[in-house]
Amino acid sequence: MKKTLPVLIIAVVLLVALGGGALLMRSPSSDVKPAASAATNAAPNAPRPARAAVADDSPPARVRGRADAPVKLEEFSDFQCPTCGLMHGVLKQLVAKYPTQVGVAFRNFPLREIHRHAAEAALAAEAAGMQGKFWEMHDLIYEKQNEWKDAADAAGEAERGGRERAGCAEEVSGYRV
C-alpha cells in the first residue's frame, strides 16, 4: 500500500487534470469578453433589429469582399488587440477563398482604456481610407502590430509605413477623420 499510494495519488490528479481540462474545453468561459460580443450581445435573448449595435448616424462600415455577399461578417475590431491581429489573417484568407460568398464589414472598436495606440491606429486607417487606401493601411497596421504597439509615436510610424505601402502622396491628417 505504501508503494502504491503515491502512484495512486498521482494517477488521480492526472485524471482530474485531464478531465477538468476537457470539461473546460466544452464550456464557454464566462470570463471572455471579445470585442464583438461585448458590443452586440448586450441582450442576447431580446429580438434585435438588423443593425442593433450601430447607431443610425454612424458611418458605413468598410467592407472587404462583396457587400451583398450571402454570408456577411461584421467585425468590431481594435488594431492593437493581439487576437484581432490573429483574426485578421483568417478573415483575409476567408474573403480571398470565397470572394463571391463572403463579405467582411469592418468597424473600429478601439479599446482606449487598455490599448493606448488603438485609437490612433483607427484614425490612421480611416485617414488612409479617405484616400482610398483603407484596406492597404488596415493590413499594414495588423501585420506590423508588434512593431508599433509599444512605439512612443505609433501614429507617425503607421502613417509613414502607410504612405510607403499605399503610395499616398499627401500627409495623412488623422485629425480630420
Binding site: 471572455v32 471579445p34 488587440c81 493581439p82 487576437t83
Partner: peptide, 21 residues
C-alpha cells in the same frame, strides 16, 4: 482558454490580452 481561442481579460492587472496573445 488558449486552445478555445478566447481573449482573457485581466481583473487585477491590465495586459492579459497582450501577454497571452
Amino acid at each position: 482558454e488558449h486552445l478555445n481561442g478566447t481573449t482573457l481579460q485581466c481583473s487585477i492587472t491590465h495586459g492579459c490580452a497582450e501577454v497571452l496573445g
